[in-house]
């Protein structure tokens, strides 16, 4: 196994949904200890791309390599087994189930020998509390249904879960869209920490300042194609913002609103 191969690499990835062409030839790579920001307009194909990496969609064509080896995930379970954990834009939480059951869904730790093998719920509760506390949310009661949590609290459960289970790569699809100031900075700190542990991170956001704060490289997606990949040293924050908008000139709007965009 080549140790300097990227954790994840895709080349010329194409994804069609029937007649809809969501991705038409996207290339991207993430290395160890690197935060790759995936940027682009609404509908650019960011979520479709990361869902393909997470095993939800199968690519129509193109190469997908994990640590240099070609893979073909049949389900998100395969991706999780390969150490790729994802926070989806829609969070993938089940409202009727408790925080703990959601946290460990699909990855339940078990104890006991086979016919009596059971989930270690005491341990699960403790971990859930602990991990949620680290992210800055005090869970009132880990048995409370996720449906009763606020939108931001729910997002925090999804992030804490992915960070806890992500062994190699952490994918975050707009993880801070509903978060308060404190939780947002906590998530950015998390991303930084995860990078220091040597994981690769793919971070999707519409907030250029968040992207610039933690990103090492930036890949811009536009209408299902990569516009380009830039290292942080190559690009200034203003340029990045213009590229994110799909090249649309933001200057005029910005001036109209008194330079606040």
């Amino acid at each position: 196994m080549a140790t300097n191969a990227p954790l994840i690499e895709v080349r010329n990835l194409v994804k069609h949904f029937g007649s809809v062409i969501a991705l038409s030839g996207v290339s991207l790579s993430v290395h160890r200890g690197e935060v790759m920001c995936l940027l682009g307009d609404n509908g650019a194909g960011k979520s479709t791309l990361i869902k393909t990496l997470a095993g939800v969609h199968k690519p129509t064509s193109g190469d997908f390599l994990v640590e240099g080896r070609p893979v073909s995930f049949q389900s998100p379970r395969d991706a999780l087994d390969a150490g790729i954990a994802t926070v989806y834009q829609d969070l993938a939480m089940i409202p009727l189930m408790s925080v703990t059951r959601n946290f460990f869904m699909g990855r339940e730790p078990v104890k006991g020998a086979w016919p009596f093998r059971r989930v270690d719920f005491a341990y699960c509760d403790a971990v859930t509390r602990e991990e949620m506390h680290k992210i800055g949310i005090d869970v009132r009661d880990p048995h409370q249904a996720v449906g009763t949590l606020s939108g931001g609290e729910r997002q925090c459960v999804a992030i804490a879960r992915a960070v806890y289970f992500g062994a190699k790569v952490l994918i975050l699809d707009e993880p801070t869209s509903a978060l308060g100031v404190a939780q947002t900075s906590m998530v950015l700190k998390y991303i930084h920490q995860v990078r220091q542990k040597g994981l690769g991170v793919i971070f999707i956001t519409h907030n250029v300042r968040h992207a610039y704060a933690v990103g090492d490289r930036f890949t811009i997606l536009n209408r299902g194609k990569t516009l380009g990949t830039y290292a942080k040293t190559e690009i200034a924050i203003d340029e990045l913002q213009n590229l994110m908008a799909g090249g649309k000139e933001l200057q005029a709007v910005s001036e109209e609103l008194g330079g606040m965009v």
Binding site: A54, A92, M93, I94, L96, M97, F104, E108, R117, V119
Partner: peptide, 22 residues
């Protein structure tokens, strides 16, 4: 108490979310 039980609740609660969570 078991993994299968958690999966049954998850599959019925939201099959998509359950699948995406593994």
């Amino acid at each position: 108490r078991t993994r299968a039980g958690n999966w049954i609740f998850a599959a019925g609660g939201d099959p998509n979310a359950a699948r995406n969570s593994g």
